[in-house]
């Protein structure tokens, strides 16, 4: 059995996961290193070795390796299950073997591509020669002192230090404030236009908070919201105003327009 490191337990493999393109690559490596016949994989042993290798991994980056580990474990379990006598079935390993052989072909072909590429790169087409950059100046010795460096650094920091931050002031508009606003307005009148409430304090935040306050009050059945049709003025009404809604068109609920 192959053991690349003397400190390794027998049958344990020391591998760098970065050396492998993926779980099939690793599996193939384990199989080929041990001269295992790919059509007769000792699933138990290979599974153990595979798990040993991926155990050393950062699991976040190893999802595909874990998936393969799960597949191996499942195949192992399927091999242990007694198969119904006289019922021919496919070897549980068959699909995996097929994939391994196929992947091995991919490796063969990509190696051939690699050498074809290397050959091709040795031949150059008539190319455009950009002007060569001027030869680099001799490297000047560093004559700056730490003090000068500090001044330079601090100077830059002072120059650019100001006005850099972008401050987003947090608008303090509370829901309670808007609830009070609505209720106060309804003290004076049976109904009030939403637009009028909002116009008293412009700004998107005020509008949104007033609407939320209206919705909240409506949910608590402390007000009723009326709108004659979509995009028309929204009215906030006292709950008892419902009885009077026949009076005005604007008080009929959305959806019951003529």
């Amino acid at each position: 059995m192959h053991a690349p490191s003397s400190s390794a337990e027998p049958g344990m493999f020391i591998v760098e996961i970065d050396d492998f393109e993926g779980p099939l690559d690793l599996l193939l490596h384990l199989i080929r290193e041990q001269d295992i016949d790919v059509v007769d994989i000792p699933v138990s042993r290979i599974t153990r070795q595979f798990l040993e290798v991926i155990e050393a991994l950062d699991l976040d980056s190893a999802g595909e390796f874990l998936e393969m580990a799960a597949t191996l474990v499942r195949i192992k379990a399927q091999l242990l299950l007694p198969r119904p006598a006289g019922e021919p079935g496919e070897d549980p390993r068959a699909e995996l073997v097929r994939r391994l052989l196929e992947y091995e072909q991919v490796r063969v072909v990509s190696h051939r591509l690699r050498s074809a590429e290397a050959e091709r790169i040795r031949r150059l087409a008539k190319g455009f020669f950009p002007l060569r950059p001027a030869p680099r100046a001799e490297e000047a010795p560093l004559e700056t002192t730490w003090d000068e460096l500090l001044v330079a650094a601090v100077g830059v920091a002072v120059q650019g230090g100001d006005e850099r931050g972008h401050h987003v002031p947090r608008l303090l508009v509370s829901l309670e404030e808007k609830v009070d606003l609505i209720l106060a307005a309804l003290e004076e009148a049976r109904r009030v236009e939403f637009g009028r409430l909002v116009r008293s304090s412009p700004g998107r935040v005020h509008g949104v908070m007033t609407l939320l306050a209206g919705l909240e009050l409506s949910r608590e059945r402390r007000v009723r919201l009326r709108q004659s049709r979509y995009f028309h003025e929204l009215w906030i009404c006292r709950p008892e105003a419902e009885d009077n809604r026949a009076r005005g068109d604007e008080q009929s609920a959305v959806g019951s327009e003529p």
């Binding site: 059509v39 021919p88 079935g89 496919e90 070897d91 390993r93 068959a94 073997v97």
Partner: peptide, 9 residues
């Protein structure tokens, strides 16, 4: 195509 399909299945 699986190269290792049992003959009857």
């Amino acid at each position: 195509e699986s190269a290792f399909r049992a003959e009857d299945s």
